[in-house]
Amino acid sequence: MATTPQTKYFDLHIQGIGYVNRIREVNVKRGENFWACDISALHGAVDDVQYTRFDCRVSGAEAGKLIKRMHKACREEKKILIGFKLGDLYTETFTYESGAKQGETGVSLKARLLFIHWIKVDGVSVYTAPPKADVADDVQSETQPLADPSPTGSNDRAQAAVH
């Protein structure tokens, strides 16, 4: 029996906190419909907060359930603040069709919403993710540097980082 080689990937994740806006179900002609939202991520000094907007396709199963539950609160223009993890960041250009920037090229940051750590609606905590069972493994892999990150290196931790 022949075994097919398993494809390996390097992950790039973005973690932060941000406000959720424009929760919507996207209807497509081919394939399955999906949920999407915008996240205005906070960064910078607390007394001078900056925002970066991500247009997200909701990909995580649990994240999908949670975003659907927040749809009504979003329509009611409540402030939805989440702790999030995004993946697969890419850019997409577009042309402004109206307003002061009409005709100019803009850039949109796109990503997949993979995980929601917690949710607050109008300052009230409504969800906290259960703790992961393998927290000790995550802490160990994050705190110990990789000696040889090359795919051909002999470091087992480097090989484990690629999945």
Rank of each mutant, 00 (worst) to 15 (best):
V26I: 15
T52I: 14
V26F: 09
G153C: 02
S59V: 08
Y90I: 13
R75H: 06
Q15F: 00
L86V: 02
Y96T: 05
I80S: 02
K120A: 04
L81T: 00
V126Y: 03
K85V: 07
I17W: 07
I17L: 03
S125Q: 13
Q144C: 03
N33G: 06
D47P: 01
G87R: 15
F115A: 04
A147R: 07
H13V: 15
D122M: 06
K85E: 14
T128C: 05
I39R: 08
G16N: 07
A158D: 11
I119E: 06
G31W: 04
Q140I: 00
L114A: 00
R69Q: 15
I80T: 03
L86P: 05
S141W: 08
L42Q: 15
G31R: 09
T93K: 11
L89Y: 12
K132Q: 08
N27M: 11
D55M: 03
E104M: 10
A133T: 12
P131L: 05
K8S: 13
G103S: 05
K110Q: 12
A45Y: 12
D122H: 02
L81V: 02
Q140Y: 12
E62Y: 03
K110P: 03
S154Y: 06
V107F: 01
S125W: 01
C56Y: 06
T152G: 07
F84I: 01
A36E: 07
G123L: 05
I67Y: 02
Q50Y: 11
C74P: 03
I23C: 14
S98P: 00
L42G: 00
R75P: 01
C56L: 08
I80R: 00
Q159N: 15
S108L: 11
L81E: 04
Y51R: 15
